[in-house]
C-alpha cells in the first residue's frame, strides 16, 4: 500500500502542474509578443508604404488634382519665349530618358523655336498645366501642339501631349517614362488590357494604386500617370 502512495502523489502533482500549462503558455506568449515586432497587415486598396515614399505617387493620391473642377485661365500677357523655354526643359528630359527619339526632340525643338499661336495655363492647386498650339505647317498636316501637366508640390510632370511620333512604340516610351519618374522601383507594374485602343499601352501598379499609359498614334504621343485603375 505504502509503495503506491509516492507514485500516486507524484502523478497527481504532475496533473496539478499540467493544469497550469495554458496560463504558463499565455504568459510566455505575451512575453514573446512584447519583445517582438510584428508585420502590419496590408489594407486592401491602400497605398503601399513603398509607394508612399515616392513623392510623385504620394502627391498623386493626396493632392486634389482634379482638372475638371479647376478654372481655365488664359494668360493675359503672353510671354512666349518663357513659355517655350518652360516647355523645352521637360522635352529635353524626355529625350534624355529615351521617351522620345532625338529626331522627335529636334522636331519639338523646332516648334518651340517658333512663337505659338495659342497658349493656355491651368492651375488646379495640385496640378499646373500648360498648352502650346502652333498653326498647321501645310494643308495636309494637323495642328501642332504641346500639352504639359506637373504636380505643384513636386514639380514632376505627370502628363504629356506631344505632336510627334512614329519613331518609338508606346510600350518603349511608357517604360522609359516610368524609369524617368522613378516609379519603376515598385516592381509590380502589370500591363492593362486596352481593348480597342491598339495604339495605347497601359500599366497598373497595385502598390502604387496608379495607372500609367502611353498612346503613340501617327504624329501624336500622349503620356499620362493617373491614380487608381483605369478602364479602357
Amino acid at each position: 500500500m505504502k509503495k503506491g502512495i509516492l507514485p500516486t502523489a507524484a502523478a497527481l502533482l504532475v496533473c496539478a502542474a499540467l493544469l497550469g500549462v495554458p496560463a504558463l503558455w499565455a504568459r510566455l506568449s505575451d512575453a514573446r509578443r512584447l519583445n517582438s515586432v510584428q508585420p502590419r497587415p496590408t489594407l486592401a486598396g491602400a497605398l503601399n508604404e513603398e509607394a508612399r515614399a515616392i513623392p510623385v505617387l504620394y502627391e498623386l493620391h493626396s493632392g486634389t488634382s482634379d482638372t475638371s473642377s479647376t478654372d481655365r485661365e488664359e494668360l493675359p500677357e503672353p510671354d512666349l519665349a518663357d513659355l517655350c523655354a518652360e516647355a523645352a526643359e521637360p522635352v529635353s528630359a524626355l529625350a534624355d530618358a529615351g521617351v522620345i527619339s532625338a529626331g522627335e526632340k529636334a522636331r519639338l525643338d523646332a516648334l518651340l523655336a517658333q512663337a505659338p499661336l495659342q497658349y493656355y495655363r491651368q492651375n488646379s492647386g495640385a496640378l499646373q498645366s500648360l498648352s502650346l498650339v502652333w498653326p498647321q505647317q501645310d494643308a495636309a498636316a494637323s495642328t501642332a501642339a504641346i500639352h504639359l501637366s506637373r504636380q505643384t508640390a513636386t514639380g514632376v510632370y505627370v502628363s504629356f501631349g506631344l505632336s510627334v511620333g512614329g519613331d518609338l512604340d508606346a510600350e518603349t516610351r511608357l517604360r522609359a517614362w516610368l524609369v524617368m519618374l522613378g516609379v519603376d522601383v515598385l516592381g509590380d507594374w502589370e500591363p492593362v488590357d486596352t481593348g480597342s485602343y491598339a495604339d495605347t499601352f497601359a500599366l497598373y501598379s497595385a502598390k502604387g494604386q496608379a495607372t500609367a499609359y502611353c498612346t503613340a498614334a501617327a504624329g501624336w504621343v500622349n503620356l499620362q500617370l493617373s491614380k487608381g485603375s483605369l478602364t479602357f
Binding site: 502523478a11 504532475v14 496533473c15 499540467l18 493544469l19 497550469g20 500549462v21 495554458p22 504558463l24 503558455w25 499565455a26
Partner: peptide, 12 residues
C-alpha cells in the same frame, strides 16, 4: 496524466 497533458496543451 494523458488526458491532462492533452487538455492542457490543447487548451493552451
Amino acid at each position: 496524466l494523458l488526458l491532462c497533458l492533452t487538455l492542457s496543451i490543447g487548451g493552451g
